Amino acid sequence: MRYILSGLAAAVTLAACMNAEMPDASEGRAAYDANCAMCHGASGTGDGPLAGDLSVKPVNLTTLTRDNGGAFPVNRVLSYIDGYKRKAAEDVEMPEFGLLLEGPSVPIETGEGVFTPTPRPLAALLAYMESIQK
């Protein structure tokens, strides 16, 4: 019974967020400027004012799609920003922003028609990052 109720709660949550208006890149720009530009730079190329103080150069965020075979890596970006997935010791220089990017959820397609409820500020940041791809 517990599994049925948790599944029903998840379905209700997802249905509610499916009706939410999706954020656009301009909304995400504010989240980027507040949380990312100091290291990744205003243009996203990894040349922010703090970049020189870091032991590992910040990633060029404008080439994520190109470096992923032409598809924007939604899951990888979301996981990295919220701190869920870090792959090496040098990754600890990038703070986890998951707690800073909370809010009402919107549905983000995470592949193969699967939609994941995602905090709106994080979805907005994702939209902005996708918009700066070269």
Rank of each mutant, 00 (worst) to 15 (best):
Glu21Lys: 15
Asp33Gln: 01
Gly103Arg: 10
Leu61Pro: 07
Gly113Ile: 13
Tyr128Leu: 07
Val59Asp: 12
Leu50Lys: 06
Leu78Asp: 10
Val74Pro: 09
Thr110Ile: 15
Pro58Ala: 07
Leu54Asp: 01
Gly48Arg: 02
Ala16Val: 11
Ile132Cys: 03
Glu109Arg: 07
Leu125Cys: 14
Asp53Tyr: 04
Lys134Asp: 12
Arg66Gly: 12
Gly103Glu: 13
Gln133Glu: 09
Pro117His: 14
Ala15Gly: 10
Leu64Tyr: 07
Asn75Gln: 13
Val92Tyr: 05
Asn35Lys: 03
Tyr128Ala: 03
Gly111Trp: 12
Gly83Asn: 00
Ser105Tyr: 13
Tyr32Ser: 01
Cys39Trp: 03
Lys85Arg: 10
Val59Ile: 15
Gly98Pro: 04
Arg76Ala: 15
Leu8Ala: 13
Ile4Lys: 02
Phe115Gly: 04
Thr63His: 10
Ile132Leu: 04
Ala127Cys: 09
Asp53Gly: 06
Leu101Asn: 13
Thr45Cys: 02
Gly41Arg: 02
Arg76Phe: 08
Glu90Ala: 04
Glu90Asn: 01
Pro58Phe: 04
Met129Ala: 11
Met38Ala: 05
Asn68Trp: 08
Ala31Phe: 03
Lys57Leu: 00
Gly41Tyr: 01
Tyr128Asn: 01
Met22Arg: 13
Tyr84Trp: 04
Met22Thr: 08
Ala20Asn: 08
Glu21His: 08
Asp33Arg: 00
Lys57Thr: 03
Ala123Phe: 10
Arg2His: 11
Phe97Thr: 02
Met94Arg: 10
Met22Glu: 12
Arg66Lys: 14
Phe72Glu: 12
Lys57Pro: 00
Gly69Thr: 05
Lys87Phe: 05
Cys17Gly: 06
Met129Trp: 04
Arg120Lys: 15
Ala51Glu: 00
Leu122Thr: 12
Ile4Asp: 03
Thr116Pro: 06
Arg29Asp: 02
Glu27Arg: 09
Ala37Leu: 02
Val92Gly: 03
Ser43Leu: 11
Ser43Trp: 05
Asn75Gly: 13
Arg86Lys: 04
Leu50Glu: 05
Gly103Asn: 09
Asn19Pro: 03
Asn68Cys: 09
Arg86Ser: 01
Ile81Gly: 04
Ser6His: 13
Asp53Lys: 07
Phe72Val: 09
Ala123Trp: 11
Thr63Cys: 06
Pro49Ser: 00
Thr118Asp: 14
